[in-house]
């Protein structure tokens, strides 16, 4: 029996409806979460950025004034500088360290799970606790770091002093995040085809060359992901700065998000100001990420 075009249309519509209904059934919950936890806050932030006043009292619309006042803010440059320096100090060691650790971990057979746990352990430590641990490590009188220096007859260092605090903060971040990426990289390395390495081995590639010509390019995608994500995280450093140094000494570890926090929860109704800073930071991170994407995805084979 031949069906008319109209009948075909109707049947096709029914089939499609059924398929889409199923799709929405699965997507629905995710979509709700997306709206509630992402869209609403972002729209809220945009709204707040045009307001003066605080959470407790009322607010008034001030247009773009919050943004216009940002450049004059005392310490704005310092906060941006601190954040960028922090990112530069922490991200390369995190990724290079994670890569080095993962290369070793991927080769370990016996007790691999135990080693991986030890490497991953700092990741499980909440930022606040990590800050406290490092407070003890860096204590001038009884901290581990200065005790080691003393044992070697070196003058103890004021680790949380104004010149070194940001570096210590970066070191803490390396300590906390290196394991995270190491585990990612181990998984990637283990997933690389064994035959390629055998082939390269026969082709006369030394260990170093196999790393350079095979491992690195084959891990391109995950490395790229790690660079982007750790940059995003790095620019948002906050909790450890709060616990370890409270943004000090002076403003030595006052980062952008630290300023946002000061303004949001400070006594003095500057939520709109905080929202404006956040939006500028979001825009900056977005720009940076897109630039990284363009730079890193220059070659074919990465799509």
């Amino acid at each position: 029996m031949r069906l008319s075009p109209g009948q075909h249309r109707q049947l096709r519509r029914q089939a499609r409806l059924k398929r889409e209904l199923t799709a929405w059934l699965f997507l629905g919950p995710m979509f709700v979460f997306f709206v509630v936890f992402l869209v609403v806050p972002v729209v809220g932030t945009v709204w707040w950025s045009t307001q003066a006043g605080g959470i407790v009292g009322g607010t008034t619309n001030v247009g773009l004034q919050n943004f216009q006042r940002l450049p004059d803010l005392v310490g704005a440059t310092t906060a941006i500088q601190n954040t960028l320096i922090f990112a530069l100090l922490s991200i390369p060691p995190i990724l290079i360290g994670a890569l080095a650790i993962s290369l070793v971990l991927a080769r370990i057979g016996r007790g691999a799970a135990a080693y991986r746990f030890f490497v991953y352990f700092p990741v499980l430590v909440p930022g606040v606790v990590a800050g406290l641990i490092w407070l003890f490590l860096t204590n001038v009188d009884f901290g581990l770091f200065d005790n080691v220096l003393r044992a070697f007859g070196v003058q103890p260092v004021t680790w949380l002093g104004s010149d070194t605090a940001l570096g210590v903060l970066a070191a803490l971040d390396v300590w906390r995040n290196v394991g995270y990426w190491a585990i990612f990289f181990v998984a990637a390395i283990i997933g690389l085809p064994e035959e390629l390495y055998q082939a390269a081995n026969l082709d006369g590639a030394s260990t170093a060359k196999r790393f350079w010509y095979l491992t690195l390019p084959l891990m391109r995608r995950i490395l790229f992901f790690a660079i982007v994500v750790s940059t995003i995280w790095g620019l948002q450093v906050f909790d450890t700065a709060l616990v370890l140094t409270n943004g000090g000494p002076g403003t030595a570890t006052t980062t952008i998000i630290f300023r946002v926090w000061q303004y949001v929860f400070g006594t003095n109704d500057k939520v709109g100001f905080a929202a404006a800073i956040s939006l500028v930071l979001i825009a900056a991170i977005l720009t940076l990420t897109l630039t990284q994407m363009r730079l890193l995805r220059s070659r074919r084979g990465d799509d």
Partner: peptide
């Protein structure tokens, strides 16, 4: 905090 920058 600003004054401490001067101390430093």
């Amino acid at each position: 905090a600003e004054i401490q920058n001067c101390y430093a």
